[in-house]
Design a protein around this nucleic acid. Sequence first.
DNA 1: TCAATCCGTATC
DNA 2: ATACGGATTGAC
Length: 653
Amino acid sequence: MATRAAREPAPVAPVAKVCVDVSLSHLDRPFDYLVPAELDAVAVPGVRVRVRFAGQLVDGYLIARADGSAHPGRLTYLDRVVSPEPVLGPEVVALARAVAQRYAGTLADVLRLAVPPRHARAEAASFDVPAGPVGAPDPAGWAAYPAGRPYLAALADGRAPRAVWTALPGEDWPARLAEAVTATVHGGRGAVVIVADATDLDRLDAALRTTLGEGRYVALSAALGPAERYRRFLAARRGQVPAVIGTRAAAFAPMRDLGLVAMWDDGDDLFAEPRAPYPHAREVLLTRAQQAGAGALLGGYGRSVEAQQVLESGWAREIVAPRQTVRHRAPAVTPTADDPRDQASARLPSLAWRAARDALAAGAPVLVQVPRRGYLPSVACADCRTPARCPHCHGPLALPSAAGTAECRWCGRAAAGYACPECGGRRLRAAVVGARRTAEELGRAFPGVPVRTSGRDEVLGTVPAEAAVVVATPGAEPVPVRSGDSGGYGAVLLLDTWALLTRSDLRAGEEALRRWLAAAALARPAEQGGRVVVVADGGLAPVQALVRFDPGWLAGRELSERRELGFPPAVRMATLTGTPAAVAELLSVARLPEGTDVLGPVPAAEGQERMLLRVPRSAGLALAGALHAAAGVRSAKKAADPVRIQVDPLALL
DNA sequence: TCAATCCGTATC
DNA sequence: ATACGGATTGAC
């Protein structure tokens, strides 16, 4: 902040390469500034700076110092160094660059996701670090998986093992992940572990506190609040902790000597970043493992198609238990038809009701999984449950209010005289009943048994291992606390499954299985009486996979189907969303790789349309590069209407 | 021929 | 947003 006239450049490396915090595509490159002599000591790579850019003061990061500049014009001085804290290390810059390239986005946008906002007070705070070495973890928990203990040994050994881990039913996954982290730290390297939500983070946190010890890791999540979040981020950045756990954004957390990146339940759609350039945390972590030469671990009860792709490409190996062990640990799974004439009570087919009754009689809790209300706000035939469609345009019918007449969500016509095309029934019912209504109905079906609910508003972490009915929405299933030798639900009932299965989403089957397995994995083994009743057609592939507890089988099938259909992850896709004129303009200036499939347009939001671009995976970077360049041409022209570019978006059709 | 003004473009 | 360069205009 010296006066302009008095400034002179630093004696060595007087040029600062700065990434300005501007998300215009055509400005996505470093700009050169002069370091004034008085800022020489603090203007180190990684610090936040403020610079005059296009007439205004903007924030930025000092990426590097250099002796000279290729810029032909006059260089401006840095306005100031915001803080001497170098928050951005070279590894994170390299990672953010790769992510920006992969997703056709700008470095500035990715850095906004990677570095939490500054909180000056937190920079002064200290962080207590325990002394002493970290012992090796007990690898016994991994013994059920033939590749498990060698995997841990490789981590401790400083190697880079990469694996997709299919957890056994009933597996204490937080403990297993904590052991993998501890093995890595024991071997002298750091670890980053990502989970989908706060509940999973709490579980992992508790396991790490036991296995690795307090003060040797930090948990990062958006829920912390800016000061605490930044304080913990700094502890990681300063190398004070060898492990970071967290949600989505923590995939970018700084970590020295990275030895392991891990993720639990990578199929959860919370891992998709909703802000530009919409990177998926799984991709961030795997890119990171590749760049850092670190190990990688994708774990879950289910298996995503992307994890299957990583396996089939040979990049990672499987960690699975032998079939015999799976059978030994798994509950007995029975599909049952959703036949309204066979209802023991309002919502329960008789088989499900009997399974619940038996479990309760044995003093065990019963888990009932129901889809979230509002998940699919449509209606079905009250008699045969066929989803109701508009007689005019075949759009889905919905109930605008609890008591009103159903109307079409596409054409808006009221469906007054509706008759079911399957059975001729004339009554409609809300397709998905919320957890609370279900709980009330089940309370009447099992008088005298306590009913608990766990849903989005109020998530129960655990429930006692005693007779009770627990109604939960997917992702909010409480874990029954272990009492002596027997833990787990006596019965798990999966209701209203067609709400998941009839979605027109490409991932419907995979997603249904992922949610069912998350619930079913909490049931006791069959030989301790554990039962799962899934109210769905037993011939469907996801139901088959559940019955056999074999998510790898379904993922393999789905992946080969995606290859045939030409959908990610077998190919790379990008969607362009905006007004028809804006999308057309972007496409007209884009120099797409040869052979790019251009599909569409399909209607999007009001006044918007969407185009789909498809290339082989090998041309993915070229496609992203072309789209980024084309976006740059438009942003340089100050094009009015924005076009959203999404590479491999989660929701395709 | 030259200053005043406009417009497009780059932004260090 | 603002600054700059080149083109354009209009007065001498």
